[in-house]
Design a binder for these strands. Structure first.
Lengths: 161, 161
DNA sequence: ATACTCCTTACAGTTCGCTCTAAGTCAAGG
DNA sequence: CCTTGACTTAGAGCGAACTGTAAGGAGTAT
């Protein structure tokens, strides 16, 4: 079963521009052509594209993804390198998740901040509130935002945002 | 206590170029100048910059962060909008975390795939292996990668990567 | 025949987020 | 007085990842 570039684009929610761009960048060396030079995508190409998509999600630049593809095409001699690369990206993703949890906590604090301000009708309310009025769960976020050491937050007030 | 742009750059691990660029883009309207036009950063500006950093981490483009800053400068009339925006970014971050967990699972599968291949000395091993040889935890990843419905994975073999 | 649609290539243009250069100002130190 | 070094601006340049255009070809529909 073969697919045209347009069908694949639709299936994967990409544009044909993007797919041709990937091909030009050497990410799709596995895609065959018919007698007229028209790309014929196979089911196994969809698998390749899923892997490319996965690596893109890790934040890997296209030229590095290309290296991985090249290794894969090269064959069994590069298995160890490919394993190493995947493990490395795994680590990177774990760190990104951790980072996003931090970001989420900061946004939670900001939600609380603006909910309080909305109740009061003014951000001025946070001049009265000090660290001890801030819910415990936001204590460390509060300190991070104010560039304070965690035990040095008694009387601090928010002036920004 | 005032800081120069160079001191702030060092403190936040940015370049002075970046900070001036942010200023040019309207992200730092709160930064004061001395008589010679030199930027004087205050402690509360560090708090602003932390918030900018947080929003950047959510993937928000600088021009949208600028909107948030503008609202903040405008004052209490925009509290509801700001709350809305923060809640929206919170949602976005939760989705990103979910997405990264998917990506992590895919990488875990790929680790397993290459560990098996490394043991065997060849990726050919995965031609023998079928869905029932794939550990249960990877079943759904396996199906996703092969664009299969989850109950239709009996005899499928990997050809890519 | 001719219109339509989908494909092809080559290459130009766009957006984002910096990154750097050039030319100049100012304050401190020898 | 002169150099050094950190600051200023305007504006050019860059790399990544698309995004779009122009010109053309093949296959089908009327």
């Amino acid at each position: 079963m073969y697919y045209t570039i347009g069908e694949i684009a639709k299936k994967l929610n990409l544009t044909t521009y993007t797919l041709r761009y990937y091909d030009k960048e050497g990410l799709l060396p596995f895609v065959e052509r018919d007698g007229n030079g028209i790309r014929r995508f196979k089911d196994s190409d969809l698998e390749w594209l899923s892997i490319i998509e996965c690596l893109k999600q890790t934040g890997m630049p296209l030229k590095d993804i290309r290296v991985f593809i090249d290794w894969s095409i090269q064959g069994d001699d590069t298995i160890a390198q490919r394993l190493e690369l995947i493990r490395c990206q795994r680590e990177a993703v774990q760190q990104q998740i951790e980072q996003l949890h931090q970001t989420l906590k900061t946004l939670d604090y900001k939600c609380w901040y603006y909910e309080k301000a909305k109740e009061a009708g003014t951000c001025e309310i946070h001049r009265q509130l000090t660290a001890k009025d801030v819910p415990d769960e936001f204590h460390d976020v509060f300190c991070r935002l104010h560039h304070l050491s965690p035990d040095d937050a008694q009387g601090k007030q928010s002036k920004a945002g």
